[in-house]
Amino acid sequence: MRGLRELCLAPAAAVLAALFAAPMGILAAYSLMTRGAYGGVATPFTLEGWRRMADALYVAVLIKSFVVAGISTALCVLLGFPLALFIARAGARKNLYLALVMLPFWTSFLIRTYAWMFLLRDTGLVNTVLLGLGLIHEPLPLLYNWGAVILGLVYGYLPFVVLPLYASLERQDPALEETAADLGARPVETLFRVTIPLCAPGLRAGAMLVFIPCLGAYLTPDLLGGGKTILMGTLIQNQFSSARDWPFGSALSLGLMALVTALLWMQARRKGETLP
């Protein structure tokens, strides 16, 4: 019985080895080398790439990435919870409402980010309308700042948090909320003392699903932050393009990878709360 299974797994093993493990191995090797004159890497071997991560400048970028990802995650959870609650209580239309959350997520990340550029830039729709109404006299600087980046991240990853929250709420026994009400709890009390505590696993999984991609986000800060907002993703990209410092970029990539893996592992350790 063994033959067929092994044969089926072999091509995937080859892809994972050649296009995932080997590239990571190359990054590990490059992170220990010296930058080449025209990009690329050269000998001698050194720990310089890893050491530079401790520079105050780069620690600041790391902290900023955590803060931005944290704020975006908090906003996603705050907005995602009422949406999930609404869907879970929608009865027969549940699937339709859920599909309406997921559909924009699957269509195109690039275009969804571009949509905000279209709305927010100086000649964009929001400024045009406000100018036309005479509410402002010169365009508001809505694009290319931290606010726009966080808005883009929340918009991009809100569906991620809705799905596990909905799954959690859906599984809850409605009798629990009824009991709370029968025992004299007001709806708000029931919400905060029964419903929300019971969906803690969904909250944790949802928060993690948003936090991880936000931490390594590249496209959103690049387009909506316009190069003024340097986060981890942008810093890594810079090392491989304009800065031409592949060893430092490799070390940064592996550092980010280690962070992501640690977060995943923390989540996976909770029994029955693995990421979908």
Binding site: I26, Y30, G216, L219, F240, G249, S250, V260
Partner: peptide
């Protein structure tokens, strides 16, 4: 879970 930019640079380096 790998950030896209990390996948990108690792494949480029490879």
């Amino acid at each position: 879970a790998t950030p896209e930019i990390v996948t990108g640079v690792s494949l480029l380096a490879f």
